[in-house]
Design a protein around this nucleic acid. Structure first.
Lengths: 114, 114
DNA sequence: GATACCAGTATCATTTAGGATACCTGGTAA
DNA sequence: TTACCAGGTATCCTAAATGATACTGGTATC
């Protein structure tokens, strides 16, 4: 039987697995602007995302190598999240996604499907 | 309280919701090549995706307006799936995603993280 | 003394997604 | 008469993702 595990082989399956969840694209989009602290990031996220979920998503993105977590051992604590090298390169996908997403929203509104 | 439901407003959140699941990117990628029948599509999908899941994913993408289902009332039945106008425009995102996905795979291999 | 700050984790409940299996149609070929 | 074809749906079960809530720690302010 032929090997067909596509994670780590197919760019589409791999990307979709790494950019999983409801919020990862939005998080990546915010992180494009540079390093940001946890609470500030949460404030910029939609209100219906809890900090628990944000924490898990960040850990997942970190484990996938897309973002870097830098902790400063101060009181009160300071932690910054930033895109990694490969994470930063994702900006081209985001740019196309933003264009398409806006087209899609407009298209759906025009056709009364939204 | 400010309205913050971002579906239908934010291109990132909207796109991610519409392109949900494990296989949607891969499906869109295959559909780029033109109309295709259900069973042929299933043959091109990874083996660990059942036809039940494929059926559900296709219905979801159809409801989101990305693909069109065309049924020919013959025996045996013939059904073709094809990208819609707005679905076809997603190809630019796919192109960037393919580039980035391959870079990511290479990067992770080089750093022994995959 | 109470509360706020920051950056979380632990635990539990709920929701959503995916997989396994059985079953359907209705004509045709063995 | 049985099996097969394509293209599914129905049902049940499990796994994964998300949400809600409570809690931590040390400082600094009210």
């Amino acid at each position: 039987m032929e090997e067909k595990q596509l994670f780590g082989k197919c760019p589409y399956v791999t990307s979709q697995k790494v950019l999983t969840g409801k919020w990862s694209m939005y998080i990546m989009h915010i992180l494009k602007d540079g390093a940001i602290r946890f609470n500030e990031l949460q404030r910029r996220m939609p209100e219906d995302m809890t900090h628990t979920t944000l924490s898990r998503q960040l850990k997942s993105l970190e484990e996938s190598g897309l973002i870097v977590r830098r902790a400063y051992y101060e009181i009160p604590p300071k932690v910054e999240y930033e895109l990694s090298e490969i994470g930063y390169k994702f900006d081209k996908v985001l740019a196309e996604l933003e264009i398409w997403g806006n087209e899609y929203i407009q298209y759906m509104k025009d056709n009364h499907m939204l």
